[in-house]
Amino acid sequence: MTSATLFGLAGAALVGIGLFGMLVRTDPLLRILCFNLLGGGVFLVFGAVARRGAGAGFGGDPVPQAIILTGLVVAFAATALAVALVLRLASAEDKR
């Protein structure tokens, strides 16, 4: 087994872990955290795909690598949005 495959399998396991957490955790903040675990798994699967595509003197296929980079930033923005919403909801609590 190559290390690309190994990390791909790890990504698959992380997808399972993150998805489970997103579905069973009730604390919204922990749900967001699990969304990030899940995202890490997805990116790792993508990373395995990129590594498998090594060639032309590159250690990995640069196209999926660039896509992962973009995806990481988008995932961060999504996390920030979700966190802001959770905090806003918590402060709405007091006023009632």
Partner: peptide
């Protein structure tokens, strides 16, 4: 937002597999 984020991350997983 939770539904939507889960939806897009699953979509992205599919994108990775299709590229692979």
């Amino acid at each position: 937002l939770m539904f939507a984020l889960l939806g897009s991350v699953l979509y992205l997983l599919g994108v990775a597999l299709i590229y692979g």
